[in-house]
Design a protein around this nucleic acid. Structure first.
Length: 288
DNA sequence: CACTTGACCTGTCCGC
DNA sequence: TGCGGACAGGTCAAGT
């Protein structure tokens, strides 16, 4: 599921909903979803208060008062949904999304002392929650190799182009998806930004001109900022911390729009395979 | 090292 | 209706 805009949307929601709450209990299913041992949980999670919610790339970090942090990766189908004391009434649009939790995809339930709950649901079980000492997050393998945050004010077009040099002989799409190049880009926003910059996803990185990198930088930031504004993209399973869907897909130009007209030139959008991923392009605007 | 492919899982959709 | 295969928003571990 979630790429940077979706994870950021969840972060903002959780930030409003769970900071200051105290954890009463934790229930989980497999060690894969929640690999920590009971003693660590008891010592550093139970009775801990949530002090902050951060994001790095597609990873969420829920900081606790015990100097431990819940590090969460939603992968393809993970959801973090908070359900408060007052559930939505019958007939409310959000009813079907959160009123029935937990369900069969629920992997972890964190109960707060005020009897509200945070659910970690994950249909495909690729995602995970790890309780780690806050000071040791930077030592995690993923954190050590992940590239810069593309939406930071300090991130420049020159830095953007420079990051791609390590992947000179691969396709621009594979490089965009590589988290060690730039943090947070996934399949949706790779396709959307390449369309915006009029670059064919199969173009080799070493053939991309400086002006094209600049355009791609602008498009990527613009598309991600718009997606955050729209609460992310919901194709299938993505919902935010309140159980609501995002609306970016209403604004998508190519992603999952094969067979429809390119909004720029009217040519029919096609779906191809690049870097092992379904990829959407306008064959007129994006040439090899 | 850089690059590609398969694996991890469950659910859904599409063609026969 | 049933069944097999491909595919789905991500990352790793292997392989070349």
């Amino acid at each position: 599921m979630p790429e940077l805009p979706e994870v950021e949307t969840v972060r903002r929601g959780l930030s409003n909903l769970i900071i200051g709450r105290t954890i009463k209990s934790v229930i989980h299913d497999t060690a894969k979803s929640f690999p920590n041992d009971d003693q660590t949980v008891k010592s550093f999670m139970i009775q801990a208060k949530v002090s902050g919610v951060r994001r790095r790339a597609k990873v969420l970090m829920i900081d606790l008062s015990t100097s431990y942090t819940l590090v969460v990766h939603l992968k393809m189908t993970g959801q973090l949904v908070y359900v408060g004391e007052t559930r939505f009434g019958a007939g409310h649009p959000s009813d079907s999304l959160v009123n029935q939790l937990p369900d069969k995809s629920t992997r972890v339930v964190i109960e707060f002392t005020d009897h509200t709950n945070l659910y970690f649901n994950d249909q495909r079980k690729f995602g995970w929650i790890k309780l780690v000492p806050t000071a040791e997050i930077s030592e995690m393998a993923f954190m050590k190799k992940v590239g810069p945050e593309p939406l930071e004010d300090t991130f420049t077009p020159a830095q953007f182009a420079e990051r791609f040099k390590r992947r000179a002989n691969t396709s621009i799409k594979a490089a965009l998806l590589d988290q060690s190049v730039i943090a947070g880009v996934g399949n949706i926003y790779a396709d959307e930004s390449l369309w915006g910059a009029k670059i064919h996803p199969k173009r080799l990185v070493k053939t991309i001109k400086p002006a094209e990198f600049k355009k791609l930088y602008i498009e990527l930031r613009s598309v991600m900022n718009l997606a955050i504004e729209k609460g992310g993209s919901s194709n299938h399973t993505y919902i935010n911390a309140e159980g609501k869907k995002g609306s970016y897909m209403d604004f998508a130009r190519v992603f999952r729009r094969e067979g429809l007209a390119c909004p720029r030139c009217g040519t029919t959008i096609i779906k191809i395979r690049v870097a092992g991923r379904g990829t959407h392009i306008c064959p007129h605007c994006q040439r090899l």
